[in-house]
Simulated scan of single mutants.
Amino acid sequence: MLIIRPIEARDYAALFEIAQESGIGFTSLPVNEALIQQKIDLAQAAFQAQPSQPGNQSYLFVLEDTESGEVLGTSGIEASVGLNDAFYHYHLGKVVHASRELGIHNTVEILTFCNDYTGVSEICTLFLREKARKGLAGRLLSKFRFLFMAQHPERFSDTLIAEMRGVSDDNGKSPFWEWLEAHFFSMDFPTADYLTGIGKKVFIAELMPKYPIYVNLLSKDAQACIGKVHEKTKPALHLLEQEGFRCRGYVDIFDAGPTVEADIHNLTTIQNSKHSLVKITNEHNQSQSTQERLVINNKVAGFRACLVPVDTTKHSFDELLIPQECADALQVVDGDTVYHAPCAGRK
Rank of each mutant, 00 (worst) to 15 (best):
Y211V: 12
E163G: 12
A162I: 13
S186V: 07
N216H: 08
R165Y: 02
L237N: 09
V215Y: 14
P212T: 08
M187D: 08
A182L: 14
H238N: 11
D188E: 01
F184A: 08
K210P: 07
Y194K: 11
V202N: 03
R165I: 03
A222K: 13
T233H: 04
V202W: 00
A162C: 03
H238L: 14
L218W: 05
A224N: 08
F203E: 00
L160C: 14
F176N: 05
P212C: 10
L195Y: 13
A205G: 04
L207M: 11
V229C: 10
N216C: 05
M208N: 00
Y194H: 15
L217G: 07
Y211D: 15
G227N: 09
D193N: 12
K201S: 07
Y214H: 11
S219P: 10
D170F: 15
H230Q: 01
K232W: 10
D170N: 15
W177R: 05
S174P: 07
K200W: 08
H238S: 13
T196E: 08
L239Q: 14
N216R: 09
K234L: 14
L218F: 04
K232Q: 13
K173W: 02
P175G: 04
Y194R: 13
H183A: 03
D193G: 09
T196P: 00
P235R: 03
Y214W: 11
A236R: 12
L160V: 11
F176V: 04
E178M: 06
K200N: 13
V202G: 04
T191Q: 12
I204H: 00
